[in-house]
Design a protein around this nucleic acid. Structure first.
Lengths: 151, 151
DNA sequence: TGGACATCGTTAGCATAGCTAACGATCTCG
DNA sequence: CGAGATCGTTAGCTATGCTAACGATGTCCA
């Protein structure tokens, strides 16, 4: 019955979310000029810090990126002293990525700085709006996960 | 009183939205391998189509990008026959960007293809969830706009 | 009116991030 | 032991972002 309308709504919403994501990241990129920690590096470092020692392939998969791309991201992080490469004892093909102490510190600081502008905007919201946005964020996360598993 | 908690919540939410935006865009990028219309081009083309003839500088500002970057994006679109550069009669420093008929067609097709995966995931949501997500999207848009004006 | 300053878009040059193709090293399994 | 699979890297391409510098054009004031 209203499936056409439903389809239109879904497309419009998808479009809006897409556009919002683009503009959000463009804004936040500016915010860490000083930090020298780009979005992909921040995201990968986050996995290394919270996900424990992890292989490069796992990291690439987690970040939805091909191995050569992750090789370079990890090399960048390594040159900055934020992670360490270590060979696996058992399987010598594997490279395990460890976060250094400095990596952990920088992650926290960088994350905060990067999202600071957004966080300040969020703080201005009313309680109801905050709750609504939290709900939306949760739904968005689930949506993205469902896309990932479909793929 | 609960300002500390409030601050923590805002930071966590900002972080979640940041992460969601990164992963969403990484997913959608895959979806238009065939289209050869990247996110920045799609977004700029959209402004040209819906915003009428627009100068390069306006386009750069709208897309939160520096003029040299927009010069190249427009050059790419022009080489694909999607937009046309035209000099302004009055002020010869200005370059007006016009979308071509082909540009309009490709925009619609590209947008749909790019967000198709997301739209299909959205279609599976229940009515309540859809409404919540729409509300979240609206709030997110307002948040981003408020960040833009602050900057 | 003429010259100083401002504005616009481009070019040049650099860094990052994404990809595919190809390779060497290593592991696994028949 | 040898064939094939898996892992990470290298090489090389494209696109996007930036700053610095420049030429062309407008504007404004002395």
């Amino acid at each position: 019955m209203t499936s056409r309308k439903r389809e239109r709504e879904a497309l419009a919403l998808a479009d809006q979310l897409h556009s919002a994501a683009i503009h959000l990241l463009r804004h936040l990129r500016r915010e860490d000029d000083a930090s020298a920690l780009s979005a992909p590096r921040l995201s990968a470092l986050s996995v290394a810090v919270f996900g424990g020692p992890v292989t490069l392939g796992q990291l690439a998969k987690a970040e939805q990126v091909k191995p050569p791309t992750m090789t370079r991201i990890v090399t960048g992080l390594e040159n900055d002293g934020l992670v360490r490469r270590e060979g696996d004892k058992r399987d010598k093909r594997l490279t395990r990525i460890h976060a250094t102490a400095r990596g952990q510190k920088v992650l926290m600081a960088g994350r905060a700085r990067r999202v600071e502008l957004l966080a300040r905007a969020v703080e201005k919201l009313g309680a109801k709006e905050l709750a609504d946005l939290q709900r939306g964020g949760q739904l968005l996360r689930e949506l993205i996960d469902s896309m990932a598993s479909t793929q």
